[in-house]
Structure formats: structure tokens, C-alpha cells
Design a protein around this nucleic acid. Structure first.
Length: 827
RNA sequence: GCCCGGGUGGUGGAAUUGGCAGACACAAGGGACUUAAAAUCCCUUGAGACUUGUUCUCGUGCGGGUUCGAUUCCCGCCCCGGGCACCA
């Protein structure tokens, strides 16, 4: 062993040793408590980036720590391998998506291994493996049979020049990212998962997650599901048998509803204007609005506009005729896609009414002012008593909500209802590189699912991908043409593939038994490992991925595959990696390649820095200089151990009563163990854990050369051994190397985590801050647990304290034991 | 626009339940060692004031408030970031 720290030599050596001894392989063992630690799996984009390094280092610290505290730790890794970049690579470089993907997987796997992560690589898979997506196809069929899958019309982004469907990401400022022509919304038949059926349970179970998930993620999910209680009201259309259904949370304003607004997408729009004078104008307006993107449409500053359809509906309580408009600000996605317009009490309706000279009727008057439709310049959206509402006049509007709803129920024109903002999950993608949807279209039998025994529906590999025209699968006749599973006659396959969020909605269950071939999961394995105890990943997944995974877990439970209600017991959301004030990205050119860092400073320094730079939840600012500090600390620690190695090897085990001069070191050692343990266990604050260990190293540097006596050496030995063990989850290579250097043979992952003696982890003297009238005037060391009267006496003796009290009488003394004493003395 | 976060020295951050603002690092400056450089080790380092102290004043995005005491709680702003259902 050399005396110099050479990460390039020791890191590959230990990675090999770990691999050869199968250190990270785990098996279900009911004798041991299990711990399932999972980080969000990566998309194989080509090379790992700093976000991966950060995410997987955080996970690795927890995984190794849990193993050292006696848990049977499952720590798997795999690849979220379907998605658009592979198709883009095919378009741009002519490389096959499967080849591109698996090459990336191999390269990134090598990179992850060079970081020394404790993955059980035996469980690895990619979601584009047919052995994986075949089960997804099975779930689709089972869900179809249960009524959880249906087909409906939906709007997609369409580029007329490329003749192709675009993802939102491919629409830049309303135009196609490739050819620059205007993108518009086009209707298409799509497959949907009925996630709304689970809306209430997804909302209720948020409560159960409140212990282990960040509050902000739960709030975001709650708002996304968006449950609101309201009233469904039916308006009869004059001259037609159809009714317009409206969802409103403000039925108290019904007497003030003077017109009706429909979303441009609403199916009634075409029927209403059909063969009328307004038909052309309406259709043009709808067409124009669908060419605008949704974010513009819903903004408050957006110019509200609409056109009259030529038809009227009847207000069910007043009997008055309400003109029906198509309005650009009404969203088809929320409620029923139709809004009863109450201009006096809704700002958007008010603006619309002013613009088109529609009647404004005030039906709610506040206590302290008198609202007049002639003079008002904005809608009144507050509380008050009803007016112009016949038998409901004088009632508080909050009571009127209930009373008018019951009235509507009596006259059979409406009912109380619960509305969710959450919409069903559209999973159809007109793309090649995804899991085929296992359905066929038969002229005789209609839509028919593939037979279970014929799964998987294999994605054909030999296709031409141009990025233009129809999906490549539609062009592949050998794929499209098939026979009907029911009648055996000629049939066509569904050529849409599934949203890649479907793969990531259940991958964590597959890790429990990744090699199971006759069913999706081995029930015993799943029963042992699930749920995931700790999930770690980016905050950008706070809503969609996590909600879909929760939904899928509940569906798979109801299909009888698993018992868990929720997939992830605890969640840690990690911040992004920022450089020069912006998220690291290729387009900004501010990428830092982790591979270069590993080559220069080693995996341990890279890991240490990514943990030390910021707490995990926060965005982390990258600085090139910071890694130098981490590297310097490792060198410093290395030298400390090498310098004291001989003493430590021959040293005595810890003594309970150390020599007086070393009591401070003993105390610092136990305090550090306590701090590091708590920081990992309860707070995930690795930056402060590392800072504490740095402090102990600094302390050791101060005294290491003055230690000779056997009893002193025993204190030193305890400190250094504890440090090596505690550092091992953070910087595993150097830790195992130094552990061996001081004469041990076991690997630290199998070594127990050190405990601390509470007696030594406590301070005996504390520094009390003395305030006079809330301003700090002195600091006094006192024995721990000093009584208030004694503390007061000591404080009053202090020169600077006397100076500020002068002759003023002491009115009050506030004492927070072991922290602060505040003397209130004002003349 | 809507929902959710964040803002502390030159920089990253610390302050765990309302109780000493700036731990630990980085950068910078000074010194030791060296023929020299690198490496290493030691010291100084929020701003300002003077009476240079166990000193005072100011200071946690901005403006108010609650409190003996506010980075922490409340109200109103400003700025930055994440998500918004076909990026993953």
C-alpha cells in the first residue's frame, strides 16, 4: 500500500471485489427485515448526467446505510427504454431505435458501475424487452375486460406538412419543430385508462402518505385531482330535444345566468349551428380557436371572444331565453365543457357580456354597498344576500347554494354532484418506439383483444422511420395485417403504442421477480418486498408519474396481482442540478460530464461533492471548484489514517473512562456518530452529515501528533474507525481500502453501523446567550441544566449586561434552558 | 394564467420546535516549508464605526405586522424555478 491517495487504482479494484463476492445480490429472507430502496430509473439517453449522479448517489448512501443497520436491502436498477429520443436518433442518424437504445444502456451501465453504486444488477431489465412489455399488454387486456380501458375521440397536435401527430414538446410556439408550419388540433380515436374511477381513492389515500411524502407533493396531487362539490344543471335547448349540462359551484347565482358558453370542442356546437345563418361563422371560430394553444387560451389577459350559435336555451328557474355562445376561454377538459354565464358575478362572463352587450342581472348584494349593473366595472364575486331571485330573495348566498340545488332536484332540472378536475389518462401514441397496444380491428367482430397466450405483440424491428407521415407501424403491412382472434377472419392491428408512462407505472413491482416467465410477478417475492420503502427522484415527477404509479398499483391490486394499496411508502424529491443559473441541458451548453470528473478526481470525490454541495431537496448549483474541496478532504483523511495506522492496528479497544485530555475527542466522536446517524435516518441531510465528519477530522489533525499512551490511542482508534465506517456509504471505495489498511478483512457493507453512548454524545457545559431587551450582550459558559435563578445571577454579574441595564428595574426574565436568557429592563 | 416551491456573506450552504445568523466548504488575502513550483500545513475573511473591545450599529429579496425575541409565524409585493395531462 502506497502512502498516496490514488482513486484510479483503488476504485476499480474494489468494484471488482464487490462484484466477485456478489456483495449486492439479495434474496427474499423472511428472517430479516426488508428494505426496498428505489431511485427513479433513467431513460437511456446516451451518457449519465449530473442529475443521475446526484439521484443515484443519494440512493446509494441510504441503501448502504440500511444494509449496515441490519436490513435486507433491495436496490435494483433498470432502463425506462421506450420514448421519442430513440425515434429522433433514427430520423437524424438512420440508426435503428433498438440498437441505439441498447448501446446506450451498455454505455450507461458501465458508467454507473464506475460510480460504485450498490445495485443488484441481476435484476436489471429494459422496458423495451418483450419479456417486460408483454405483461403490460396483458394488463391492458385485463383492464379492458374490467371496463378500465375505453376508446374516445381526443384532440392531438397535427402538422399538416409532415402529415404527422406531434407531442406537446414538438410544438414550439405553435409551430412544428421540424418544418415550422402552423400546428393545429385534430380529432382522433384514442385509448383511455379510466383513472377517474380511482379519483376518490387516490385523493383519500394521500392522507396515508402524509408521514413519508413531502407535503408539497401531496398538495400538488390533491389540487391536480381537484375534487369540488357542485351542482349539475340541465338547460333545455329551444327547438331541440337535447339538453346542455352544466357543472357549477355557484348555483346560488342561477337567477343571474343570462347566456350560455360552450367550449369550441363541445360536440353540441356543430349540432346547434347546423343549417343556420351562423354555421359558417361558428365553424370558422372553432377552427381558429383550435389553432391556439391552451396556455394562451386560459390566461387572464387573453382576449375573450366568442360567436353566437343561433340557438337559445331556457333558464330552468326564470324561464328566460339564454343565447348560446361558443367561447374561446371555456375548456372542454373541465366540468362538462359548458358554462352558465353569470356576468354580474364572474369576471370572465362580465367581460364577455360587456363585449357582446349581453344582459347583466345582479343576484347577490353585499352588506355594505349597492351593486348596480349600470355602474359596475367588474364582477362581484364575494358573499352577500340574494336579490332578483324570487322565493330565494334575502337568503345568504352560502345557504342558497344548498336551497337552489334542492329546488332543482325537485323540478328534476339538476342535482348535487361531485366533480374532479382529474381527467382520464389518454395512453395512445402515434409513434413507433413504444409497447404495441394489443388490440385488433375486425370488420365482423369489431374491436377484439389479442388472446393472452399470443402475447407479446412484438414490436417489429425492421421498419423505416422518417418522422413524416403516418406512424411507421401503419406502413408495416406484416404487422398491421393479422387475423381476428375471435372469428379467424382478416383483421388489422392497432398501430398506436402506449404512453411510456405506462411502463414506469409498474416497473418497481417487476424488480421483485424480474425473471418470472409464466406470470408478471412472483406473488411471494412481491409479498416480501413491496411496497417500496423509500423512493427517490426528481421533483418534476411530483404529479404525473407518481399519480400514474399510484393508480396502477391500485388497479393491479384489484386485478389480484398484488396486495399493496400504495407503491411508495416514503418519497424523497431531489432538486435539479443548475449551472450558471440554468438547468443543465445540451441546448444551453452548460453540461458537466460526470465521466470527466470520475477520471480526474475519482468516483468517491464525485459522490462526496454531489452530496455536500446542497441538501437533496434543493436545486444544486454546480461549481467546478467545489469538487476540489471534496477531493482535498479525501486526501486529508487518507493521510490521517496512513499517519496513525501503526498506532491504530496495535491499539486497545475503546475504554469507558478516557484520559482527561482526550475526553473532548471522545465526546466529539460520539456527537459525530449521533449527528451523522440522525442526519441520514431522519432528515436526509447528507451535507451536514459530511460537515460533521469534516469537523471531527479537523479535530483529529489538531491532536494526532500528541497521542502516545495506550489509553489515548484507544480513543484515537475509536474515532478513526468510526469515521471510516460512517464514511463508507458516502465514499465506499476509500473506506473499504482504509479499513483494510488498518488491519480489517471484512467489507464495510457487512459491518454494523456504529452506535453512540448518550453520555458521551452530550455536552456538559453550554454557552448561554444573554440578552438585554432582546439584544445580545454577552455569552456565558454554564453547566448544562443550570437553573433559572443561577443563570440570572451569573448574567447580572456580567459587565456588559450591567452597562445596558443601568438603573432600570428588571421587569421580566425569560429563560430558555441551555440556550438563552433575556432580561427585560426598561425604564 | 393556474397549482407548488424557493430567495441568507464574493460563492455553495448551516441555523433540527420562534431563542447566539453565517457551522462546514469554496474563493480571496497573508504566512510557513521549498532553489522554485505543485502539494501540504497555519492564520484572516458579512458590511460599517470608533473609544480596537468579552465594543457598538446595520444585516437573511422588498414593505408592513405579531412577539421579550422572527431567516423561522401572519399580510401585501418583487424576482427565480418546477408542473400544467403527447418530454421523460
Amino acid at each position: 500500500m502506497t502512502s498516496e491517495y490514488k482513486p484510479k487504482e483503488i476504485e476499480p479494484r474494489w468494484q471488482n471485489k464487490w462484484e466477485k463476492s456478489n456483495l449486492f445480490e439479495v434474496k427474499a429472507d423472511t428472517e430479516k427485515p426488508k428494505y426496498y430502496l428505489l431511485e427513479m430509473f433513467p431513460y437511456p439517453s446516451g451518457r449519465i448526467h449530473m442529475g443521475h449522479v446526484r439521484n443515484y448517489t443519494i440512493g446509494d448512501v441510504v441503501a448502504r446505510y440500511k444494509a449496515m443497520t441490519g436490513f435486507n436491502v433491495l436496490h435494483p436498477m433498470g432502463w425506462d427504454a421506450f420514448g421519442m429520443p430513440a425515434e429522433n436518433a433514427a430520423i437524424e442518424q438512420g440508426i435503428r431505435p433498438d440498437k441505439w437504445t441498447y448501446e446506450n444502456v451498455n454505455y450507461m451501465k458501465k458508467q454507473l458501475k464506475s460510480m460504485g453504486f450498490s445495485y443488484d444488477w441481476d435484476r436489471e431489465y429494459a422496458t423495451c424487452d418483450p419479456e417486460y412489455y408483454r405483461w403490460e399488454q396483458l394488463f391492458f387486456i385485463k383492464m379492458y375486460e374490467k371496463g378500465l380501458v375505453y376508446r374516445d375521440r381526443h384532440f392531438v397536435n397535427w402538422c399538416d406538412t409532415c402529415m404527422t401527430v406531434l407531442a406537446n414538446e414538438q410544438v414550439e410556439g405553435g409551430v412544428c419543430w421540424r418544418c415550422g408550419s402552423q400546428v393545429f388540433l385534430k380529432e382522433a380515436d384514442q385509448w383511455f385508462f379510466r383513472i377517474t374511477k380511482y379519483a376518490q381513492e387516490l385523493l383519500d389515500d394521500i392522507e396515508k402518505l402524509s408521514k413519508g411524502w413531502p407535503e408539497r407533493v401531496l398538495t400538488m396531487q390533491r389540487n391536480w385531482i381537484g375534487r369540488s362539490t357542485g351542482t349539475l344543471i340541465r338547460f333545455q335547448i329551444e327547438g331541440l330535444s337535447e339538453e346542455i349540462e352544466v357543472f357549477t359551484t355557484r348555483p346560488d347565482t342561477l337567477f343571474g345566468a343570462t347566456f350560455m358558453s360552450l367550449a369550441p370542442e363541445h360536440p353540441l356546437v356543430k349540432i346547434l349551428s347546423k343549417e343556420s345563418l351562423h354555421e359558417k361563422e361558428v365553424l370558422e371560430f372553432v377552427d381558429k380557436t383550435l389553432r391556439e394553444d391552451k396556455i394562451t387560451r386560459t390566461s387572464e389577459t387573453y382576449e375573450k371572444s366568442g360567436v353566437f350559435t343561433g340557438r337559445y336555451c331556457i333558464n330552468p328557474v326564470t324561464g328566460s331565453r339564454m343565447p348560446i355562445y361558443v367561447a374561446n376561454f371555456v375548456l372542454y377538459d373541465y366540468g362538462t365543457g359548458a358554462v352558465m354565464a353569470v356576468p354580474a358575478h364572474d369576471q370572465r362572463d362580465f367581460e364577455f357580456a360587456k363585449k357582446y352587450a349581453l344582459p347583466i342581472i345582479v343576484v347577490i348584494q353585499p352588506e355594505d354597498e349597492n351593486i348596480d349593473p349600470e355602474t359596475m366595472d367588474s364582477a362581484y364575486e364575494g358573499q352577500g344576500r340574494l336579490v332578483n331571485s324570487v322565493e330565494f330573495n334575502g337568503i345568504e348566498n352560502t345557504d342558497a347554494i344548498r336551497k337552489i340545488t334542492s329546488h332543482l332536484e325537485k323540478i328534476k332540472k339538476g342535482s348535487s354532484t361531485i366533480n374532479f378536475r382529474l381527467r382520464d389518462w389518454g395512453i395512445s401514441r402515434q409513434r413507433y418506439w413504444g409497447a404495441p397496444i394489443p388490440m385488433v380491428f375486425c370488420n365482423k367482430c369489431g374491436i377484439v383483444p389479442i388472446k393472452e397466450e399470443d402475447l407479446p405483440v412484438m414490436l417489429p424491428m425492421d421498419v423505416e422511420i422518417t418522422g413524416k407521415g403516418r406512424s411507421p407501424l401503419e406502413e408495416t403491412t406484416s404487422f398491421v395485417n393479422t387475423t381476428c382472434p375471435r372469428c379467424g377472419g382478416p383483421a388489422k392491428r392497432e398501430t398506436d403504442t402506449m404512453d411510456t408512462f405506462v411502463e414506469s407505472s409498474w416497473y418497481f413491482i417487476r424488480y421483485c421477480s424480474p425473471k418470472c416467465t409464466d406470470k408478471p410477478f412472483d406473488p411471494d417475492e412481491v409479498a416480501y418486498w413491496m411496497p417500496v420503502d423509500q423512493y427517490i427522484g426528481g421533483i418534476e415527477h411530483a404529479i404525473l408519474h407518481l399519480l400514474y404509479a399510484r393508480f396502477f398499483t391500485k388497479v393491479l391490486r384489484d386485478l389480484g396481482y398484488i396486495d399493496s394499496n400504495e407503491p411508495f411508502e416514503r418519497l424523497l424529491t431531489q432538486g435539479m442540478v443548475i449551472k450558471d443559473g440554468a438547468k443543465m441541458s445540451k441546448s444551453k451548453g452548460n453540461i458537466v460530464d460526470p465521466e470527466a470528473l470520475i477520471n480526474t478526481y475519482g468516483a468517491d470525490a464525485t459522490r462526496l461533492f454531489s452530496l455536500f454541495a446542497a441538501p437533496p431537496e434543493k436545486d444544486m448549483d454546480w461549481s467546478d471548484k467545489g469538487i476540489e474541496g471534496a477531493y482535498r478532504f479525501l486526501k486529508r483523511f487518507w493521510r490521517l489514517v496512513v499517519d496513525t495506522k501503526d498506532k491504530i492496528i496495535s491499539g486497545l479497544p475503546p475504554v469507558s473512562e478516557p484520559p482527561k485530555p482526550l475526553e473532548g475527542l471522545k465526546r466529539k466522536t460520539h456527537q459525530t456518530i449521533k449527528k451523522v446517524t440522525e442526519d441520514i435516518e431522519t432528515r436526509f441531510r447528507f451535507n451536514t452529515a459530511i460537515a460533521a465528519m469534516m469537523e471531527l477530522v479537523n479535530e483529529l489533525y489538531k491532536i494526532k501528533d500528541n497521542i502516545d499512551q495506550p489509553e489515548e490511542i484507544s480513543v484515537l482508534k475509536e474515532a478513526i474507525e468510526s469515521l471510516i465506517i460512517m464514511l463508507s456509504p458516502f465514499v465506499p471505495h476509500i473506506a473499504d481500502e482504509l479499513w483494510q489498511t488498518i488491519g480489517h478483512e471484512d467489507m464495510l457493507l457487512k459491518h454494523p453501523w456504529p452506535g453512540y453512548d448518550p453520555k458521551w454524545a452530550e455536552e456538559t457545559t453550554v454557552t448561554i446567550a444573554v440578552q438585554v431587551n432582546g439584544k445580545m450582550r454577552a455569552k456565558i459558559p454554564m453547566p448544562k441544566d443550570t437553573q433559572k435563578s443561577d443563570a440570572k445571577a451569573l448574567a447580572l454579574r456580567e459587565q456588559n449586561v450591567k452597562r445596558f441595564i443601568k438603573d432600570s428595574p428588571i421587569k421580566k426574565v425569560i429563560y430558555v434552558p441551555d440556550r438563552i436568557i433575556n432580561i427585560i429592563a426598561e425604564p
